[in-house]
Design a protein around this nucleic acid. Structure first.
Lengths: 138, 138
DNA sequence: ATAAGTGCAAAAGGTTTGCTGTACT
DNA sequence: AGTACAGCAAACCTTTTGCACTTAT
């Protein structure tokens, strides 16, 4: 029996998947699907946006990358451990807030009997850099 | 000087606004814009969806209602005090989790100098009722 | 009277999908 | 060989917008 490049579910290894995965893993700025597409295109110019969407969704389901939603738009994150985000509504940048979900919040959800499977905790506001820029501007 | 029904910004009081506001205030289930539209239509059948969208946005900006986003779709909430939400991914129901933002999380954001203006903290999972239903089903 | 607001239909923006052809195993 | 996958364009769904008409003040 030869070594198979196909996973348990019959998924195949394609050039597109490799490029998309590498693109996300090397992007530290929470890119949108469109941005992943633009970056992946530099390596594989014939790739299509539909494929990018399909592969991103597959990678998320497999737990290889994670997805966050900001302004009703998906963004992809090479970090898969849970963390919060801070979104600057002035410059658009997204900052990782590396803390787990607060235990009290968790208790308030699980206390009534709900089962947490996922969470998304996002803060919005003015980032340090935009705040400084504004101060100087005056 | 007569008492004006117009607020500071020259906003007028219309039947549409009154109906939409009342609809949200009396809806305890975090309705979508479409649901607000359907409900408002029972009182004012000629109202349009565009007006519902415009008025909801205005009410949110004025702080009279609040908006949460679930699955990239806006939902409206009569409660304006901050709270978290739990979304059941099995039945779609949304539950209020009445706790403020954890102080530690806040400190982790403000520590580096960011300024929090808003937040949205959502949990996803299986609600108490769906969990019970499943247990009985076996 | 006049400017804000409404309704309608079209457009926008992000994402998904059907189909046909391609390529991994 | 046979099935999973890719590319393309069309469809989708929610939300926004331009325009002409209406209405609150």
């Amino acid at each position: 029996m030869t070594t198979s490049h196909r996973d348990k579910k019959g998924k195949r290894q394609t050039r597109q998947k490799v490029v998309i995965y590498r693109t996300v893993i090397t992007s530290k700025d929470h890119p949108t699907a469109e941005q992943v597409y633009e970056r992946a295109r530099k390596e594989l110019s014939t790739i299509s946006l539909a494929t990018v969407y399909r592969v991103l969704k597959e990678l998320v389901k497999e737990g290889k990358i994670s997805e966050i939603v900001v302004n009703k738009q998906s963004r992809y994150d090479y970090k898969t451990e849970y963390h919060h985000h801070f979104v600057c509504t002035y410059c658009g940048k997204i900052f990782d807030i590396d803390i787990p979900i607060c235990q009290m919040a968790r208790d308030f959800v699980e206390g009534p009997g709900h089962i947490i499977e996922n969470a998304q905790h996002t803060f919005f506001g003015k980032c340090k850099f935009c705040a400084e820029k504004e101060k100087k501007g005056k």
